[in-house]
Design a protein around this nucleic acid. Structure first.
Lengths: 156, 156
DNA sequence: GCGTATTGACTGCATCGGCAATGATTGCCA
DNA sequence: TGGCAATCATTGCCGATGCAGTCAATACGC
């Protein structure tokens, strides 16, 4: 199915533009909400990733956030300086550094999570539950499709 | 309606995370597709904005891309150096600089648009048309909701 | 066991975008 | 007319990110 055509293509109906704008809007709104709690949105995302057990090492974190490894190292540097995360050299494989949330880090993560939840519920106040569920399901599907395509292209 | 709850919140069902990953995926896939044509995805987006008449000045462009003005100035610098855009000081209001696509700029924009269309049609090959239409409509609605919320907060 | 490839963490370098400040120009209002 | 605010484009500065390269440690093939 060819969905897009030369005539029908435009910024307003391009999924790329829309995803970019939504991301920018969310980031711009969340950043000030987190300001007095401490972390940036990216830092919070990293702590959430650790908190949910999605990442226990630096390399995991880079994969889960789709981030560069160098940037992840520096990101963890700041998290460690803030006292939110600890680095521990693994004993079985001494290349890896295990990441753990400190009690303070957990507290900050939870606090920001609650603020994010409140923000989203405020934004979505006038939406139907089914609409939101549909959108989440479709965006998850799109994310999966994009990643599959990337693997096909990247590992040819 | 409170859609998100403490228990149900997680990266995989967070619209912010999903939008971020989709944006990253699209950008990462499009960048190499545009490589030999010349522009980066951001540069192409700017030219599309001019091409569609959504922006005729630097300030317009910054608004349409939700970009910083300083970054926009530098972005236009490179577009001008590439010979894709011309700057013309307006006569009626000598503060503004009018932006115009050169024939080369238009050609590059169209070429990359065709590549983007082909990319999306490849990605969405297995999707139903109705699914894509639903997702676009919902993402447009979300974008609108976010921008309304930002205006309410930002101009209190 | 040994050499090679792979993986993980880390570090310089360049780039990009956001923020703040500046200069020029215009509109507004007393 | 004169002053003041707002807008536009531009620049310096800074933080964040991607890329390439380095070093250490592990896994694999012989």
């Amino acid at each position: 199915m060819d969905f897009y055509t030369t005539a029908a293509f435009g910024p307003d109906c391009s999924l790329g533009f829309l995803a970019r704008r939504i991301h920018q809007g969310v980031q711009g709104a969340l950043e000030p909400l987190f300001a007095d709690a401490g972390p940036s949105v990216t830092q919070w995302s990293a702590m959430v990733s650790i908190w949910f057990g999605r990442a226990s090492t630096c390399a995991d974190l880079a994969r889960d956030l789709a981030h560069d490894r160098g940037a992840t190292t520096r990101l963890v540097d700041t998290l460690e300086q803030q006292g939110w995360v600890t680095r521990t050299r693994a004993t079985d494989d001494r290349r890896v550094v295990n990441l753990m949330l400190t009690p303070e880090g957990t507290a900050v993560t939870v606090e920001c999570r609650d603020r994010a939840i409140a923000y989203w519920n405020r934004v979505l106040a006038d939406w139907d539950r089914s609409e939101v569920e549909t959108m989440i399901a479709l965006m998850q599907k799109l994310r999966g499709t994009l990643e599959s395509a990337a693997i096909e292209d990247g590992e040819a």
